[in-house]
């Protein structure tokens, strides 16, 4: 696990050394990257006579290249963030079917926490450092997918760890970095929209988790609590002003509803089965003070 992540961590920096980013534009003043650009301009020079228009376009070309290079750099890192976040989610989903108190779950959660921390310090730190020097809003399209996937992994981790939804401020705290030597602080801004879209995917993961959980004899009661949590998230999601996150939002909301319906279906089957098999109300059903199992309990009484 450790070595796999190392590979992900080095990827953006290898890509950066190879070419694209930091080769053109204002960063050429550093000297070492300028060779590629000089070649490009020299080969183009003899073909087109330098009129004022051409000179103007040369400056535009430099500005565009600098922007595109930075954009690509961010996309690459965002992609790496997505990959690692997805792996962390899969790791966390292995908690499914295990008892909350078991040693395996403890081990998985510890691993996930460490990997999240490493993810923050590699790709996400690189993104934060680059956009701090520029306008984060201009490049939000480049790094949003990775950030959303990360929010999904982070919220899933915190839910499994302590049963709560992690707050936006707390998530932001993890993504605020300080450079040791420069004493400068910069952050990868977690916008409400990105946070919201990340949470939107969380219910899908919870649904997957709940189904494995339901098939395990030891962990069944947790499904009812999980259903309660997912339903609360859905309710809050419906309160969000509509159309705020562009066209993604209604689609996410729909998928989320489907996921919650699936979890409710699982709860329904569990409750029915429990009603069938046991003559008395199981003790753990009484403990749960939530909507779903209560319905089942009412019917049973």
């Amino acid at each position: 696990m450790e070595s796999k992540y190392q590979r992900t961590e080095t990827r953006p920096f290898r890509a950066r050394g190879r070419g694209g980013y930091q080769r053109r534009g204002q960063r050429t003043s550093e000297g070492e990257y300028s060779d590629g650009k000089d070649l490009a301009t020299e080969s183009a020079a003899p073909k087109i006579p330098d009129t004022p228009t051409t000179a103007q376009f040369r400056a535009i070309a430099d500005a565009l290249d600098a922007k595109n290079d930075l954009f690509e750099f961010l996309v690459k890192n965002s992609r790496d963030t997505t990959i690692e976040a997805k792996r962390i989610i899969f790791l966390l989903l292995r908690c499914g079917g295990l008892s909350r108190e078991s040693l395996e779950v403890h081990q998985i959660l510890t691993d996930a926490k460490e990997r999240l921390r490493m993810l923050q310090n590699s790709c996400m730190r690189a993104i934060a450092r680059e956009i701090a020097a520029d306008d984060p809003n201009l490049f939000s399209r480049a790094f949003s997918p990775g950030l959303q996937e990360y929010v999904e992994a982070l919220t899933l981790y915190h839910f499994l760890d302590s049963g709560i939804l992690v707050g936006l401020e707390e998530a932001q705290k993890d993504l605020t970095f300080t450079d040791e030597n420069a004493q400068q602080s910069y952050q990868l801004p977690v916008s409400p929209v990105n946070f919201l879209l990340g949470i939107g995917d969380l219910t899908g993961e919870l649904m997957r988790y709940s189904i494995t959980q339901a098939s395990s004899a030891t962990a069944r009661d947790a499904v009812f609590q999980l259903c309660d949590f997912a339903r609360a998230v859905l309710v809050e999601y419906q309160r969000v002003p509509y159309g705020i996150a562009g066209k993604d939002f209604p689609i996410k909301l729909n998928v989320m509803k489907q996921s919650v319906f699936k979890i409710e279906r699982v709860c329904y089957q569990l409750a029915l089965r429990q009603a069938e098999n046991l003559p008395a109300l199981p003790a753990y059903l009484v403990k749960v003070d939530s909507d779903g199992p209560e319905d089942a309990a009412d019917r049973f009484q």
Binding site: R100, S162, G167, P192, Q225, A232, P241
Partner: peptide, 20 residues
């Protein structure tokens, strides 16, 4: 998941912090 905080209220708090 055996927590004393009711999950519903934490969810509402978190959303409340940025919906405005």
């Amino acid at each position: 998941m055996t927590t004393s905080v009711p999950p519903k209220s934490t969810v509402a708090t978190v959303f409340g912090s940025f919906v405005g």
